[in-house]
Design a binder for these strands. Structure first.
Length: 468
DNA sequence: ACTTGAACCTGGCGGC
DNA sequence: TGCCGCCAGGTTCAAG
């Protein structure tokens, strides 16, 4: 749940209620969360009093009498709440400190990821939890921040902001917010960030974290420890959680991608990708109207990255050929690849299809990247039937999902003169639900090409002069 | 050595 | 209404 501002808010709350409270008993309901062991935690702390609470990174540091220290991390859902009287165990309580005066402090953690650890004033900064932490954002100099980023090399900036050994306290919400405010694309390699930009990122980090602290943090799914009180920063968030909503600066739909398994939000126009223009992905089942969309964008100057073409091309690549020979010797006659044979080999066998894809796809991806590198000033359209399952989904700034009713698609296939049933069968597993969900624009091409183009024109961020 | 993914957990929410 | 799959503010550790 918490990033630096939320932890700071909780520190403030605990310092209102905790100092001077003497521990009469500690009831532990889930021993696993106490890294230093439950028995000593109870034995050493009973009889001591809380002095105050400080913060280091996202850790809470409880200072007690006799130089005792408790290092605590809330992870995703941990909450502390103080009760004047009611000391009954609540659902998901990990432990309760009972005080001499009848009040108590609950540590409650729905997902049970949070931790507690007993230490002392002399050693606590040297414990493994705290020893490898980077600098506090309010204490790091612009020069130092820049040099740390340089050392991160080609790692994306978003990842660096989350790296607690580089700079502490930033989590997944504020990382997206900071990069939006700085107008830096989250994919940008750290080494490509000039000093002025890293300086700006640090300034925005401080501004946003400071503002969040003054708003009492963000309360999104959870609540602040103090009953009924929540932070207000969630109302100020510009991009986090705003997928497909208009950018507050330019109205372009906010894009959500996954980076290192975490949701990442950015504006494709305010935070242009480093090294090239906009990338629009077009996908949908066979005969859904993808090529209408692709040619529309080509005419507007987009470079067409045609994955089918690259796939065909791959069969001529000597490394690909070598791999194919190793896995599908039956598809070769007199040293030459027979693609019809290859298709018949894989068509009945899902496992073999996967193997073929694992050989072809990397080539297609490599070729696509090469093509993007060739035209640093251009915008791109990626036309890829399997885009949703490919790593290129998250290289795209927009996704145009195309679909059409079955009858319309059949009609189109008929016009193309292909085996309708066979073509549809090959495409039967296309995940339409997923397509709708992933698409920035979901286009049902029921009518003519002209109609589809008119619809595309109506999307201001496509047809306006912002991209095109 | 490096990077990605699973694991640790429960609950809320949107979609069928 | 209920059931299912997906997702969640963090961090670590095990595979590839």
């Amino acid at each position: 749940m918490p990033e630096l501002p939320e932890v700071e808010t909780i520190v403030g709350y605990l310092n209102d209620v905790l100092p001077g409270k003497r521990i009469k008993d500690i009831r532990i309901f889930r021993e696993k969360n106490i890294l230093s062991g439950a028995p000593s935690f109870q034995k050493e702390l009973i009889g001591e009093s809380f002095l105050n609470v400080t913060r280091r990174a996202k850790f809470l540091i409880f200072h007690l009498t006799d130089d005792k220290v408790v290092i605590a991390h809330l992870r995703m859902e941990g909450k502390y709440y103080f009760e004047e009287k009611d000391s009954s165990q609540k659902k998901h309580d990990i432990l309760i400190y009972d005080f001499m005066d009848g009040s108590c402090l609950h540590y409650n953690d729905v997902r049970t990821f949070g931790t507690l650890e007993l230490s002392n004033e002399k050693d606590y900064l040297k414990t493994p939890s705290l020893s490898s932490l980077g600098k506090e954002p309010f204490l790091i100099s612009p020069e130092e921040f820049f040099s740390l980023l340089q050392k991160k090399g080609k790692h994306p900036i978003k990842q660096a902001l989350l790296d607690q050994s580089l700079i502490v306290g930033i989590g997944n919400i504020y990382a997206s917010e900071i990069l939006f405010a700085s107008q830096v694309n989250p994919r940008t390699p750290c080494k490509d960030i000039p000093f002025e930009k890293s300086d700006l990122i640090l300034k925005e980090t401080k501004r946003i974290l400071f503002e969040a602290i003054s708003q009492g943090g963000s309360t999104i799914r959870s609540y602040h420890p103090k009953e009924g009180i929540s932070g207000k920063m969630q109302n100020e968030l510009q991009v986090y959680g705003q997928a497909n909503k208009p950018c507050p600066r330019c109205k372009t739909p906010i894009r959500r991608i996954f980076m290192n398994g975490r949701s990442t939000f950015y504006c494709p126009l305010c935070q242009k990708q480093p090294g090239h223009g906009i990338i629009i992905g077009v996908t949908g089942p066979i005969a859904s109207g993808k090529s209408t969309v692709t040619s529309y964008l080509s005419e507007k100057g987009f470079v067409d990255l045609d994955s089918d073409r690259y796939a065909h091309e791959s069969y001529e690549d000597k490394d690909v050929k070598k791999e194919l020979k190793a896995h599908f010797p039956g598809a070769f006659s007199r040293g030459h690849l027979d693609r019809k044979k290859l298709l018949s080999i894989i068509s009945k066998d899902e496992k073999k299809t996967l193997i073929l894809n694992s050989i072809i796809h990397p080539y297609v991806y490599k070729r696509t990247e090469e093509e993007i590198k060739k035209h640093p000033e251009k915008n791109f359209v990626i036309d890829m039937p399997l885009l949703l399952a490919s790593p290129f989904l998250d290289r795209c700034d927009f996704i145009i999902g195309v679909n059409a009713p079955l009858e319309v698609r059949k009609e189109r296939l008929k016009e193309r003169g292909v085996d309708i049933e066979k073509a549809l069968k090959l495409n039967s597993s296309f995940p339409i639900k997923e397509l709708k969900k992933a698409a920035t624009i979901y286009l049902e091409t029921t009518g003519s090409k002209e109609e589809s183009r008119k619809i595309l024109d109506s999307y201001a961020f496509l047809a306006g002069n912002k991209i095109l």
